[in-house]
Simulated scan of single mutants.
Amino acid sequence: MEIAQDSSETREVEAGAEFSVDLSRSGGAGYRWEVAGLPDGIAVTGHSLMPEGATAAAPPTPGAPIVQRFALRAMASGTITFRLKRPWEEASVRTHTANIRVR
């Protein structure tokens, strides 16, 4: 897998409103994003996988990139840390931090 740079983002959200963080990964290398740090006041409310760029006319091909979507709800500001890794390995190949500011 090509190792990309770590990334970050800052979001402003309404207190109690649901929002999502979408993270791309390879579809066939065994890597997946996991929540590595979740502060009090922010909760994961769902998780889904979507083929990147797939449509009804152009279905995904095996091993194509996948978008991993984390649905979240924030009642307080904080920073969420995600790690891209294989479940059987300790080390991550990439991290993503989402700085959440509640209005």
Rank of each mutant, 00 (worst) to 15 (best):
R101T: 15
R103E: 15
F19A: 05
A58K: 02
A36E: 11
L23R: 01
L49K: 05
I3Y: 12
I42A: 07
G37D: 11
T55G: 03
V67T: 12
N99E: 15
K85I: 00
E2V: 06
R25Q: 11
I3F: 10
N99W: 10
E9R: 11
P59S: 05
V35H: 08
G63V: 01
A71Y: 10
A29N: 13
A29E: 15
R103K: 14
V102W: 05
G46V: 02
G63D: 01
E9L: 12
R11T: 00
H96F: 13
T55F: 00
I100W: 03
F19K: 03
A15S: 15
M75V: 07
G27L: 01
R101Y: 13
R73I: 08
E2T: 10
S26Y: 09
A74F: 04
L84I: 01
V93W: 04
W88L: 13
S48I: 00
S20K: 02
A64Q: 05
I42D: 08
V21W: 03
F82C: 02
P65N: 11
I42F: 06
S26T: 08
S24A: 12
A17R: 08
T97G: 07
E2P: 05
S7P: 05
G41F: 05
E12W: 08
G16S: 06
H47R: 13
G30Q: 06
S24K: 11
T61V: 10
D40T: 09
T10A: 11
S77I: 05
F70H: 04
T79D: 15
G27E: 04
S77T: 14
P60K: 01
L72R: 01
S7Q: 14
S20M: 02
I3A: 13
R73M: 10
T45H: 10
I80G: 06
W33L: 01
A57P: 04
A29D: 15
D22G: 11
V93L: 09
I66T: 08
Y31F: 12
I42S: 07
E34G: 12
L23P: 04
T10W: 07
A4D: 12
V93Q: 10
Q5Y: 12
P51W: 01
G53P: 03
P65T: 03
F70P: 01
A71P: 00
A74G: 08
G63L: 01
M75P: 00
V44G: 07
S26M: 10
L23M: 05
N99D: 15
A17I: 04
S77Q: 10
E90T: 10
R94H: 11
R94G: 11
A76P: 02
D40H: 08
G16A: 04
E14L: 09
G30W: 03
R11S: 04
T10E: 14
M1P: 00
G30M: 04
A64K: 00
G28I: 01
P87E: 11
T61D: 03
V44C: 06
S7L: 11
R11N: 02
L38E: 09
E52Y: 05
I3H: 14
E90D: 13
A17C: 06
T61M: 12
